[in-house]
Computed example of a mutant assay.
Amino acid sequence: MPKIGMEPLRRKALIDATISAIGERGSLDVTMSEIAGRAGVSSALAHHYFGAKDELLLATMRHILAELTADMRRALRSASTARERVSAVVAVNFSDVQFRPETIAAWLAFYVEAQKSAALRRLLKVYARRLHSNLLSGLTGILPRNEADRVAEATAALIDGLYIRRALKDGVPNAATAIALIEDYLETKLSRRSAQ
């Protein structure tokens, strides 16, 4: 008989185990049995909670996005100027929670899998729209809309590119360096505007 109240804890343990397994393997080539073992539950229980592995992968991606969204909301609430909003968006994407090796590897694996999975592709589109919108929430207070759109798109591409390079164990060595690179780009774009 299942223990009352254990389902949320076990689901979370399975999601955490999925992130860990993907991070270690560097791909989605992990089995439900392997994930269940890491989570300390049976494979049958993992299937009971999530059905197929694809559903667990989708739940894991939703979890990562939910954490990112919650972190972003907190950061944006504490930003008092348009410029601080833009920096908050950048900083959250490279926070200790978001820029962990296993989370970075999971993002890369999800990007690859989204080429085959319509559900994952939809989630990645949601992420891209939110990132663009969050960047625009600050940039439109500084730049004209069309220019703010371009700077937001380029900043989002820098964030994604730095994640990819880090997942491939190339490029910037840490989050502080990644943030500094993006802030340099933003300062260049914004200082050109104020000089006009």
Rank of each mutant, 00 (worst) to 15 (best):
I19A: 03
T18E: 06
L56A: 08
R77H: 13
K53D: 08
L108H: 12
K169I: 02
G26F: 03
Y163W: 13
R74T: 14
A91N: 11
G138T: 08
R165C: 02
E187R: 11
A154Q: 14
G171K: 02
I22E: 06
R10G: 00
A176E: 13
L123V: 03
S20I: 03
S117Y: 11
M6L: 09
A156S: 15
H63D: 13
I4F: 10
L136E: 01
S191R: 12
F94E: 01
D184Y: 07
V30K: 02
L181S: 04
Y111S: 03
T69G: 00
F94V: 05
A105Q: 15
R192A: 15
V86P: 10
V86M: 09
A82F: 11
A118N: 08
A75C: 05
F110T: 12
E7Q: 14
G5R: 08
L136S: 00
N174R: 11
S117P: 12
D160C: 03
T188L: 14
A82C: 12
A88K: 06
R130Q: 15
G37Q: 12
I142S: 03
A195M: 08
H132Y: 06
G40E: 11
L14T: 07
S78R: 14
R193C: 00
S80A: 14
L14P: 11
A82Y: 05
M72Q: 09
L168T: 01
R150F: 09
R165Y: 04
R145V: 14
V41F: 05
P2I: 06
I142Y: 01
P2N: 05
A106F: 15
L190G: 06
A167H: 04
Q115N: 11
R85G: 02
H47S: 15
